[in-house]
């Protein structure tokens, strides 16, 4: 039961990251155009956020292996994702219109502007979602002898979630929902994951083990 819950948590956080990545690239195109650089920067920025999130998640898990910590990261990330349609327009507008009108945008900024926009809009939510996997590996591994198996299982679950996120957002969501609706939905999902972490920490068996494992 607990295994399933942990697997589902990691699966859904992997899915949420990829919904943000795919829908995000589409979202940025209205401001930065259909340029190849939009895709390049979106993929690069999301991977950078993942790297930072994995690093921070792992370090945090050793220091304070309490599910409440994860809830404290995911709840604000969910709120931030919810408000993407409301704040991003102003930020991106400022980014684009800082270049003098009627003159070509220098090539270096044609390449970097979409990346800056992507960092501002999607950096923090993806960072928070990435902390889930290493954190859960620390919390869910029953003993050091099982770290290999546990981490393998959870990374696989997270990656399967990412695959599902790519497919669902690209093939289905864009046709049936508005882009802002998809961001709101992803915000709700992230907030739900935060609440689930909090619940697991409070009542789940993982919390007991985590308390035992705590230094």
């Amino acid at each position: 039961m607990e295994r399933v819950a942990v697997g589902l948590l990691v699966f859904l956080s992997g899915a949420a990251v990829m919904v943000l990545e795919i829908i995000g690239a589409r979202f940025l195109a209205k401001d930065f155009g259909g340029a190849f650089y939009v895709w390049v920067s979106q993929i690069g920025v999301v991977l950078a956020a993942l790297a930072a999130g994995y690093y921070a998640g792992g370090a945090l898990a050793d220091r304070a292996p309490r599910m409440g910590v994860l809830a404290g990261l995911l709840l604000p990330a969910g709120a931030l994702t919810w408000v993407i349609p409301d704040f991003s327009g102003t930020v991106i507008e400022a980014l684009i219109l800082r270049h003098p009108a009627d003159e070509p945008i220098p090539l270096v900024w044609q390449k970097l502007d979409p990346a800056l926009g992507s960092v501002v809009v999607f950096g923090l939510p993806c960072f928070a979602l990435a902390t889930v996997s290493p954190f859960m590996i620390r919390v869910a591994a029953p003993c050091p002898g099982h770290v290999g198996r546990t981490s393998g299982r959870l990374i696989a679950a997270s990656t399967l979630g990412s695959i599902a996120g790519v497919g669902v957002s690209g093939y289905i969501l864009l046709d049936v929902m508005t882009v802002s609706g998809i961001f709101r939905l992803t915000g709700v999902l992230t907030g739900f994951l935060g609440a689930a972490c909090w619940g697991l920490g409070r009542w789940g068996p993982a919390s007991r083990r985590a308390r035992e494992a705590a230094p």
Partner: peptide, 15 residues
């Protein structure tokens, strides 16, 4: 001729 995305151009031009 200008190498740029059409929408970005239309948004930034004042002509």
């Amino acid at each position: 001729v200008r190498v740029e995305d059409g929408r970005v151009f239309v948004r930034r031009t004042t002509r």
